[in-house]
């Protein structure tokens, strides 16, 4: 299936998306959704997410890893559409804070979960909100239109 999908066929699924999203990093079994106040709905609509539209899109990713702190990722996207060749630079705003300090209990930085564990406190540092759960710090991110939580180093 292609862009058929594009919106109506999928959009309403967005709210039920958690179980369908491919999240970078393996979810932690110990941090499952059970009992979480933010838990996703019990079951996702089983319609598979459609494949992207059948368009010839080459993506060149150029990640600038110099410097510390906030890093912007420049993406060169060549969108070849019906013979017209468009060169588009995309700036996906990725905030990768310095990876310093150890994360407790061996949870890999970058691990992403769809909902927070049960017991968390909220910590605000430099106007950034962190969720502190069982020794692990998370920051919220949008994965698609769904908020997910990514393990980060202690602020």
């Amino acid at each position: 299936m292609s862009r058929i999908a594009a919106s109506f066929k999928v959009v309403a699924l967005a709210m039920l998306w958690a179980a369908l999203v491919e999240i970078p990093g393996a979810p932690l079994s110990g941090l499952s959704l059970i009992g979480s106040a933010h838990a996703a709905p019990p079951a996702a609509h089983k319609t598979a997410r459609p494949a992207p539209r059948p368009r010839n899109v080459d993506v060149d990713v150029d990640v600038d890893r110099r410097g510390r702190g906030r890093r912007d990722v420049d993406v060169d996207v060549d969108v070849d559409r019906r013979g017209r060749h468009k060169s588009v630079d995309v700036d996906v705003d990725v905030d990768r804070r310095p990876r310093v300090g150890a994360v407790a209990v061996g949870v890999a930085v970058g691990t992403t979960i769809a909902a927070l564990p049960r017991s968390c406190t909220t910590v605000v540092t430099d106007d950034v909100t962190y969720h502190h759960c069982d020794g692990v710090y998370y920051r919220p991110r949008y994965s698609g239109t769904k908020v997910v939580y990514v393990v980060v180093d202690a602020p």
């Binding site: 594009a6 109506f8 899109v57 630079d89």
Partner: peptide
Amino acid sequence: ANLGVSKTVDIDTVLDLARTEIGVILPAAD
């Protein structure tokens, strides 16, 4: 959250980029 594009693009292009870059499918995109 923002998806920034370095030059002005049309609606079709941003609908495509949203889907391919950040997995966002906009309501009513069809």
